[in-house]
């Protein structure tokens, strides 16, 4: 920390106040609907009259059960595929691209700069008009992979960026095959990046509406079921649904946080650039 800034009190207060207000803005609705979904007086649960009615109603709704299954399917397969592809792509970028690295990087992160709804619509046109495919879950998974892939590349790149490739060379000098080098040297060192990419892409594909919606036809996913219900007004069940997903996302990120805090995993932390290091 800079001594000058430490003395510069009003600035510090203003910065911290902005941080606090932003978190309040982000979490107020989340906490509000969280309380509402566990209360009988769900419109204005202050103070809440606790009840599990809404949750029970949500969990016994068979539409949401089917939708949950589909969303999980899309999430898991999209995450597996995009993590694997992004792993390949990032290693390719760092080791094999040479001078053409910027070109490949631009291609690999280009989907970030195309709105999700455009990805959904253009895939729908391509599948429906040019391939003659009906809406199906495989198309939806593949279209989600396009979007998730770019995020996965960025997450894995922050990890691989600092990886010392001489370790691989050393293993191969001592006679290990490329496959064995990967599984016994590279993978054990880069797994946190892959896991992080898997978790984030899983959550993204699981919650995606605008890509999946156009490619699935009549198959419901959790977001599309919620979207359908939202057209007829906000119901307490929707609060409960959002709260359940919030809790799952929160738990997954908490796991990531613990892994990172205990040093079991590191994502793009560069100690040599910290001010205290020198």
């Amino acid at each position: 920390m800079s001594m000058k800034l430490g003395k510069w009190k009003p600035g510090k207060i203003a910065l911290l106040a902005t941080v606090a207000v932003s978190y309040l803005f982000l979490y107020l609705p989340v906490v509000h609907i969280g309380l509402a979904s566990f209360a009988r007086n769900s419109n204005f649960p202050y103070p809440p009259k606790w009840s599990l009615d809404i949750m029970t109603r949500l969990l016994s709704n068979s539409l949401y059960q089917t939708a949950l299954g589909n969303s999980l399917l899309i999430g898991v397969f999209a995450a597996l595929l995009s993590t694997a592809l992004a792993g390949l792509a990032t290693i390719g970028l760092l080791r094999h691209a040479g001078r053409r690295a910027p070109v490949y990087l631009a291609l690999f992160i280009a989907p970030l700069f195309v709105a999700e709804v455009l990805l959904g619509i253009s895939s729908l046109i391509f599948n429906g008009l040019f391939l003659g495919l009906q809406g199906n879950i495989v198309s939806a998974i593949l279209a989600n992979v396009v979007h998730c892939f770019s995020y996965a590349v960025l997450i894995i790149a922050t990890q691989l960026y600092r990886y010392d490739w001489r370790l691989d060379d050393a293993a191969m000098v001592f006679g290990a095959s490329p496959a064995r080098t990967f599984f016994e040297v590279t993978l054990p060192l880069i797994w946190p990046g892959l896991l992080g990419a898997f978790i984030v892409t899983f959550i993204m594909a699981f919650n995606n509406l605008e890509i999946s919606f156009y490619l699935l036809g009549a198959t419901p996913t959790l977001p599309s079921a919620a979207w359908g219900a939202l057209r007829y007004g906000v119901k307490p069940e929707l609060y409960a649904l959002a709260t359940c997903v919030n809790l799952i996302v929160f738990t997954l990120l908490a796991v990531m946080f613990v892994l990172m805090m205990t040093g079991a995993a590191t994502f793009g932390h560069r100690p040599e650039r910290e001010r205290s290091a020198v």
């Binding site: 609705p29 989340v30 609907i33 984030v200 959550i203 993204m204 699981f206 919650n207 995606n208 509406l209 605008e210 977001p223 919620a226 979207w227 939202l230 906000v234 929707l238 609060y239 649904l241 959002a242 997903v245 919030n246 996302v249 990120l253």
Partner: peptide, 9 residues
């Protein structure tokens, strides 16, 4: 990461 629909809710 909670998804657009759920955040709109």
């Amino acid at each position: 990461l909670t998804g657009e629909v759920l955040r709109i809710i």
